[in-house]
Design a binder for these strands. Structure first.
Lengths: 217, 217
DNA sequence: TTGTAAATTCAACGCTTGTTGAATATGCTG
DNA sequence: CAGCATATTCAACAAGCGTTGAATTTACAA
């Protein structure tokens, strides 16, 4: 094997850090809280990952490759199944969103925390730009290109603003703040990604068509 | 006057705290940074506002009333101008968003920072639910009721999920992360709220109609 | 000008923070 | 078992944290 197997305790550190960083942000979490949560001495985090910032980056990178692959596969899959004109807007957005149900499917709570961490980073003026681009720009630009094909004649500016709207709706979903639960009196649940995407897909698809294609179907 | 005039230095503390909290979050900012930025001793913040958390709350509440009034006025105004069926979806969303251009209109950078702070709070699993509800639920529910009238027969669940999508797109805009600037190669600018809303209004209006009204116009 | 209350600074406290070097435990190889 | 590298803990550090009580300045009314 080219990559050495990480010790189980270092994995637990990553798991706990992932959850706490997602809830409270980088500065809201101390290495001691992480160590305590992982049942480990404080110094161990430094030993395995170096500085606190390195640990943060390690957490953020850990699941990025797998996530990108899942979403890219979904895009390729719907592209293969589509006709000569390529997939339509709904299919592309579906490929963009559905792989994010991975937490519910696998039952791995870690994925839920990771997605909330992405939401934290993506919405942060301080972390956002630098950290997101490095790991996700390539994938995002592929999706935007697919959308461009599905929306012939769309202006660049319109396309990017529409993606921005989609990204925002998604980000707030991933953050799982529980606000929609309260507002709706329990009729909607932040934890129900399925329901969120069931609504987000037709919502944003209609938005893309309206703005980029004059509402034509 | 019923309310005593705040000292100019306490205002500067609020201004600086507003900007720093918006950029780095509650835990990412120290009272000493705030004091230094305001050109003031560190003890002065405690003297005027109490604990650090009290200062945070003071910052968050300071502009809330004025903002709510501006948005409510915009809603009432478009309701008064509309026919017996009430304003349509575009007009309601316009009333929801346009008052947020207040920063550009007044040239007061403080408003920009405040809106970024709202984005931080709204997207935070820790702060979001508690702090947002208290100050903004009443207003939001009024807008949702107006939207319900404009979308006859809409199911509650659909209505709230659509609002969630609108809220997410708005939140990411207010955060001003600069990500859309980079992604679009400079064609879109985070700081251009006008352009953001010009796209967000038709985008989300089409989404509401698609999800809540079967796409009917 | 003097008196008084508010505003502001000064100086310091007890605690927590991230980080590190040395000591110990663990697991594997021969 | 011996030896050794890796993993983990222990103990401590210097720096920075929020907070507070006392001292000082400022603003203003009498």
């Amino acid at each position: 094997m080219s990559r050495k197997t990480p010790s189980p305790k270092s994995e637990r550190i990553l798991d706990v850090a992932e959850e706490l960083f997602a809830q409270r942000g980088y500065d809201g979490v101390t290495l001691r809280q992480i160590a305590t949560g992982a049942g480990v001495d404080v110094a161990l985090a430094s030993y395995h990952f170096g500085k606190k910032l390195d640990l943060f980056n390690a957490v953020f990178q850990r699941r990025a490759v797998e996530l990108n692959e899942a979403r890219l596969n979904a895009l390729r899959s719907c592209q293969d199944q589509s006709g000569p004109d390529g997939p339509d807007v709904e299919q592309i957005i579906e490929a963009f969103l559905r792989p994010l149900e991975i937490a519910q499917e696998t039952g791995d709570q870690g994925w839920t925390h990771y997605l909330a961490l992405i939401a934290y980073v993506n919405n942060s003026p301080y972390w956002g730009q630098k950290m997101m681009s490095k790991l996700f720009d390539k994938l995002v630009l592929e999706f935007i290109e697919a959308l461009r094909r599905a929306l012939p004649g769309a202006r660049d500016e319109d396309l990017y603003w529409c993606y921005h709207n989609l990204s925002g709706a998604l980000t707030l979903t991933l953050a799982q703040t529980g606000r929609i639960d309260k507002l709706s009196g329990g009729k909607c649940q932040s934890s129900d990604f399925r329901a969120a995407y069931d609504h987000m897909i037709p919502f944003t698809a209609a938005g893309f068509r309206e703005v980029c294609n004059g509402g034509k179907r």
